[in-house]
């Protein structure tokens, strides 16, 4: 239940801050407003401070286990460029990254069920052809 409640909070903020909006995404890529960049920058700063505190004080989670800050695989870069470009192309088409896809369906745009199913098909295609792709 705690993850569902976390999601509800996150989805609520995504809608209320208008970051789920196709219009806001275009405005961001056109560099016409600070809105989206401000959201990203302050979110990253907040996350950065939080991660520093977690590391400094070796904080535990609610179950008493020490929090593990996992790292991405920094030994390769091709997959981040190729996958990143492909995702970016789709992001500006739909006007939604993965979180907003879910939030939009709830917020009165059930049509976003189509891109969501598309995204699952995309993940299936990646899984199917993973061995053939350069990483």
């Amino acid at each position: 239940m705690r993850f569902i409640f976390s999601g509800i909070f996150f989805g609520f903020v995504l809608v209320k801050s208008e970051v789920i909006s196709w219009f806001r995404i275009q405005e961001m890529f056109l560099f016409d407003s600070i809105h989206m960049y401000g959201v990203f920058a302050t979110a990253i700063l907040t996350g950065f401070i939080a991660i520093q505190l977690i590391k400094r004080f070796e904080l535990n989670d609610l179950s008493g286990n020490q929090i593990e800050i996992t790292e991405k695989d920094n030994s390769v870069s091709f997959r981040y460029v190729a996958g990143g470009l492909i995702f970016g192309l789709g992001w500006a088409c739909t006007g939604a990254c993965p979180g907003p896809l879910y939030a939009l369906i709830g917020a009165g745009y059930p049509i976003y069920f189509i891109p969501l199913v598309g995204a699952m098909v995309g993940a299936a295609l990646y899984g199917r052809f993973q061995a053939k792709l350069k990483h």
């Binding site: 990253i44 991405k72 996958g83 192309l89 993940a123």
Partner: peptide, 28 residues
């Protein structure tokens, strides 16, 4: 909607993360 959605799923899995996992958590 369709190709855009497929690119979101394929691209985020190829890149191992999206605007949340990379753009916020990884950047932070």
């Amino acid at each position: 909607m369709i190709i855009g959605g497929i690119m979101i799923g394929f691209g985020t899995r190829y890149a191992s993360g999206c605007t949340a996992g990379h753009g916020i958590t990884g950047m932070a």
